[in-house]
Design a protein around this nucleic acid. Structure first.
Lengths: 196, 196
DNA sequence: CGGTTCCTTGAGGATGATCAACGAGGGTGG
DNA sequence: CCACCCTCGTTGATCATCCTCAAGGAACCG
């Protein structure tokens, strides 16, 4: 949890509900609000001319997202949509920055959060450049598994298309990688569900 | 300039000289020091099994680099080498974190710096995924030009190989892209030097 | 000059993208 | 319960393109 919900509300934040696929903000818009998820999940992504998408990040319960532009007066580098139905807390940029001034501990936690994000993005770039599709998919699976904290085989709760968007590949390629990985027991596929 | 040099020295920092191509730290090493450049430039990169390299960032005069792992107790996600002969100020992790505690303004400036870095990395990912080589190269050129602040045609001070490492392409591909771009006047090539 | 480093070109091959078509499953309404 | 629809998964054929490998040329520097 980034910022205490009650604190946010006491500074005038409001909670807003979004339906799956509803847009929260668009690439190149000015950043006016701090966003924090109460429930559900949010996807930030870029899409190019041909409609191909690249997922920059997926944010869940308690996460905040889209903060960097608030600090540096920049436009959003990506679009944010509700990945599931969700409830989001919004607070104006000014109030958010005031909170950081007021509570040094919160500011510090954001510094750590930003550092964590850089680390994640650096790793993502590293894997993506390494263009072998299987490599990219494995990197994605490992990241997911690490975040899940589970050591057993886990169900990967994403569609092939979603994984394609995460890895910058095409659906068909992802499918072919998975059938190959299944054949050599690197993943297990049961009823089309992927376990890793 | 990130942190005042005199302040750094007063906290026990030392200046160290590195020759071009000398390694400052390696990928997967523990982060023990804060690094700030007095003179010269430093390249952070990953390299894969086949020796192909991907440049994560190039840092110049006054820049600091390799900070994120200091905040989150992580290993370095990339290797740092001197891109030119350079003089680097090193300060132990603990002292660095103490300075941040002591000077809230400095802490705040690092928060902004980290936000800036995320923004840059998000943009880089966006361009790289868009796999058309010319697109990638143009994105690189634009980033460089924007940083240079010059509106006239500028000399691109990098070799084809270096640009290949920045964009995740191969030298030959970069060369072919440039000859094509030269043909349709998107860049100017004089004596093998690239102007954009 | 002789040796580096960098640039350039061509031919060939590998592979991921694209296109098209179909199958499978799940949910809804009649 | 069945028919329909919609989303997701799957497969094969073909294509475009970047990588690979190999060789040679150009610039620069001692």
């Amino acid at each position: 949890m980034q910022i205490d919900v009650d604190l946010l509300f006491s500074w005038g934040a409001i909670a807003k509900k979004y339906k799956r696929n509803e847009v929260l903000f668009n690439e190149n818009e000015l950043a006016l609000f701090y966003y924090q998820i109460m429930e559900g999940s949010v996807r930030m992504f870029n899409s190019n001319d041909e409609g191909k998408e690249f997922t920059q990040g997926l944010f869940c319960n308690g996460d905040s997202f889209g903060e960097p532009p608030l600090f540096i007066d920049e436009k959003y580098p990506a679009t944010a949509v509700a990945f599931n139905d969700c409830t989001i807390i919004k607070l104006s940029k000014e109030k958010f920055l005031n909170i950081l001034e007021e509570y040094p501990l919160i500011q510090k936690s954001f510094l750590n959060l930003m550092a964590q994000r850089i680390h994640t993005k650096a790793n993502t770039s590293k894997e993506i450049i390494n263009q072998k599709p299987e490599y990219r998919v494995l990197a994605f699976l490992n990241t997911f598994k690490k975040k899940s904290g589970c050591t057993e085989k886990v169900l990967i709760p994403y569609t092939r298309q979603e994984i394609a968007n995460f890895t910058g590949l095409r659906v068909e390629t992802v499918i072919r990688v998975f059938t190959k990985m299944n054949a050599c027991n690197k993943v297990e596929i049961i009823h089309h569900k992927i376990y890793y």
